[in-house]
Each structure stands twice: as structure tokens, then as C-alpha cells.
Design a protein around this nucleic acid. Structure first.
Ligand SMILES: [Mn+2]
Ligand SMILES: [Mn+2]
Ligand SMILES: [Mn+2]
Ligand SMILES: [Mn+2]
Lengths: 219, 219
DNA sequence: TATAATTATTAGGGTATCCTAAATTTATTA
DNA sequence: TAATAAATTTAGGATACCCTAATAATTATA
């Protein structure tokens, strides 16, 4: 498998290709390539048994493709943990590094790295690290805009993109923080959040808040 | 730069391309590809300023090509140190892993890794790790067959190839060991070595012994 | 339901890597 | 030095990935 094909499988997984048909356009957008290239690649991935593709509709991962994608995500996130916890990388900077390393990582290496890191369950952005032969079990999380007003929640995951991470950091919203949504204005795409420990009041875009996952604090 | 081109530069460096013209055949052999492919690639590397190529004679690295190759060797060897010292890999198994990782390593990552490893000077096979803006300073070593009989020497480096490493390990010759060449039979391509600490007498091929580097023990 | 907008596929190319077979050049050696 | 052997290059192809322009299918909208 080439790094290129591996990235296609991973993106497909991230866009919900385990259960739903992912349209070519989304893949093209995410990878920054042209739609015809996606069509071509899908045919190639179908031939190798990684995906099921319905022309004009989109593609889904086969069980084999799903397994492969999970292994890649595991490698990616293990490297992120290493880069942040051992090498001192900034959380916002590890993604592109892991995006490359994941393709140069044998199973043996991933296993040893996992042991070395003491079997971490989450990457620095809060994404669950899939465990071999087990379903990737993300903790039951909600997208921030789905949370009821006045319900205390804890930020458990931020979609791993440098710009998004910077946006949330600029608004003092980091993984582990406890917050409460105090109000929401759908027409203005704005929501107001109360940061519990700092007592700050923060206003963020509701559209962007989709990329913030939270879990309800059971207290 | 693609991983493919990077490997060409590195091989060129390893085959002495800093100072001498390396024939295409040697590169083809080492990379396991056909000679026409090498010719083609050399033209491409010349166009980009990495090598100087004389048709029918061979190629040399330009200063720019030499610098690039050294950076790759640095990354390769830093990873080997990490794999052996932190992840517990067998010395014989790290080369192929590092051969991939080296191409997915940014300068920032290499620098942080180097710091984390506490600025190691040698890889697990005894190869010197080039320090930025400094000549890679291999300790003054000799190939084992060049050593005078009855001179105590210490094994400082083994050319990094799984089969060679296995061969030397099978003969109980490891990095750091002190040995004495007791006799040499050129016609039979055989040399006899006395292993100081184990007191064993070892017989090895002189041709293969070329890949073993030793330094004279100044005692 | 016709028309427009969106999405996807086809057609036709381009570059990077690799290959085999044939022709050429260089090195060896009788 | 002439013939032979070895190394290299040229010719002609193949596959993987990507692209733009044109065409076709699907979806949204009036
Ligand atoms: Mn990431
Ligand atoms: Mn990637
Ligand atoms: Mn190595
Ligand atoms: Mn390599």
C-alpha cells in the first residue's frame, strides 16, 4: 500500500465511510485533489478490495478497509502521543508530522511504541486510540452545539486541524477544561460559553464549535 | 524530494560519492533496480543540482547533495538509536525501520529527537551521527583485514546490513568487543581472531571482515 | 416537471519510477 | 591491436497519481 492509498482509506474512515457512502467531493476537498482523481482512485481501491463504490453515489469501506484504516489511525495517534509527551512538541504542530510517520510504521514498531507509551487511550487531541481487534471506542461525546444550555461539560476532543486548534486555543478552550454553554443564537451562528475554572465568558462560532467534542460531567 | 531520490543520494554518499565517481552498476546493485533506471535518475538528479554525472563514468555528489545526504544519515541513525535504546528493538532489525522513518522526519523532529536521545554520537552499529554544520567525524577506524597481526583492537562499527550483522553475531563479534587478529591466510580468504574477554578463537572470511571496522586500543 | 446548479465521469495529458531488449561505449585480454 | 566481455545508454513500455476541459448524471428549485 502506498502512502497515497493509505491516506484515502483514513479519510474515508474519518468521513464516516464505515457506515455511510462518502461522496467523492468530500474526499477531493479533504485531500486537496481534483474529483476525477478521486474517481480513478476509487476504482483502484475497489479492485484491491478496500472499498465498495457506487458510481455517482460514493464509497464505503469494506471490513478489510475499515481494519486497515483503524491501524493507520492507531499509528497516527500513537506518534502524536510520543511527539507531545516525550519530544515536547506543541499539540498544534504534531498532526502533519504524524501524517507522515504513520505510513512508515510497521506493526512491530507500533506495538513497541504503544508499550513504551504505556498504552495510551487517547491522542493529544482527545481522539481514541484504537486497540487491536477491538472497536475504537470513543467515549460517548457530543458536538458542543448539541449540548443543552446550562449543562456542565468537559472538553474531551478537538478535531485535529492546526487552524481549528489555534482557534480554540485563542479562545482559551482546551482539552480537559470544564465549560457551560450559557446561550446560543442560531441566526447569528454564535454561542456563549462560560469557562468554569477561569470564570471567563467566551463567544465562539457555532459552526466551528461543531469540531469541539464534549462529554457531560456526571456529578 | 521524494523518498526515492533521497535514497539515491544516501547510497551515493555511502559508496564514496563525496570524493569519487560512483559507477551506475553499484547503485543499481545496492538499490536492486535496473541500470537504465539509474541512468535516468542521475539525469534527473543532475538537473536539480544534487549530483555531477559523467556519462559512462559515474556520479559524484555536489556539495549541496552531500549536505542533504548527511542530513538523511543523521535522521536514519537517530531513529536507530531510539528504536534500540528506548523501544528495545534488536540491533539487527532496526535498519529497515529507519530506512523508512528517515524520509518522514522533518528537521524540527530530528532536532527534538536528538535532544531527547541526549545527543548520541553513534548509531547502534557504530556509525557516526553527523552533527549539524560539522563534518561527520568517524573515529579513526580500520577495516579489520587491514589490522596487523597481534594488535589488540576494539570493534567500533559494523556495516549496517541485517545479514552481515547476523554473521558477525553468529561468530560472537559485537560492537565494543576487544579482539586480536592472530593469523591471516590470504589464499584461503580466512582470518583467525582471538576474542579477548571470552577467550574464544574465531575464524571468519576475510572478504566479509571488510565490513567490520575496528580501532586500535591505545593502551 | 422543466431548468438550473451541483456532482461525477470521461477524455486526453503530464511527471515520476521502473522494466526489458537492443545498440553503444569502454574495458579487458588474447 | 583485434576480439570479447562488461557496463551504460537508448528505445519503447507500463503503472501510479494528478490535472484540465468536456460531457453526463443527479439534485435542487422554480
Ligand atoms: Mn492528527
Ligand atoms: Mn498520512
Ligand atoms: Mn541503518
Ligand atoms: Mn530510506
Amino acid at each position: 500500500m502506498s502512502p497515497t492509498k493509505e491516506d484515502y482509506l483514513k479519510i474515508l474512515f474519518e468521513l464516516g465511510g464505515r457506515t455511510e457512502q462518502v461522496p467523492n467531493k468530500e474526499i477531493a476537498n479533504r485531500l486537496g485533489i481534483s474529483p476525477p482523481t478521486v474517481t480513478e482512485m476509487m476504482n483502484s481501491l475497489v479492485k484491491a478490495g478496500w472499498v465498495v463504490y457506487t458510481p455517482y453515489k460514493g464509497s464505503k469501506l469494506t471490513p478489510k478497509g475499515t481494519e486497515y484504516a483503524k491501524k493507520l489511525i492507531r499509528k497516527h495517534r500513537l506518534w502524536e502521543v510520543f511527539l507531545v509527551k516525550h519530544l515536547g512538541f506543541d499539540i498544534n504542530k504534531v498532526h502533519p508530522e504524524a501524517e507522515l510517520l504513520e505510513h512508515s510504521t510497521s506493526t512491530v514498531l507500533a506495538d513497541k511504541l504503544e508499550t513504551y507509551l504505556n498504552f495510551p487511550e487517547y491522542c493529544p487531541h482527545g481522539g481514541a486510540i484504537p486497540v487491536d481487534s477491538m472497536e475504537a471506542q470513543e467515549v460517548k461525546t457530543l458536538h458542543l452545539p448539541e449540548v443543552e444550555v446550562d449543562t456542565p461539560v468537559k472538553i474531551s476532543r478537538i478535531v485535529d486541524d492546526e487552524k481549528l486548534l489555534q482557534y480554540f486555543r485563542n479562545h482559551d478552550l482546551n482539552i480537559g477544561d470544564s465549560i457551560i454553554v450559557t446561550s446560543r443564537d442560531i441566526s447569528l451562528d454564535l454561542m456563549t460559553v462560560h469557562h468554569i475554572s477561569s470564570k471567563e465568558t467566551i463567544q465562539i462560532s457555532q459552526t466551528i464549535a461543531q469540531y469541539l467534542f464534549v462529554e457531560i460531567i456526571s456529578s
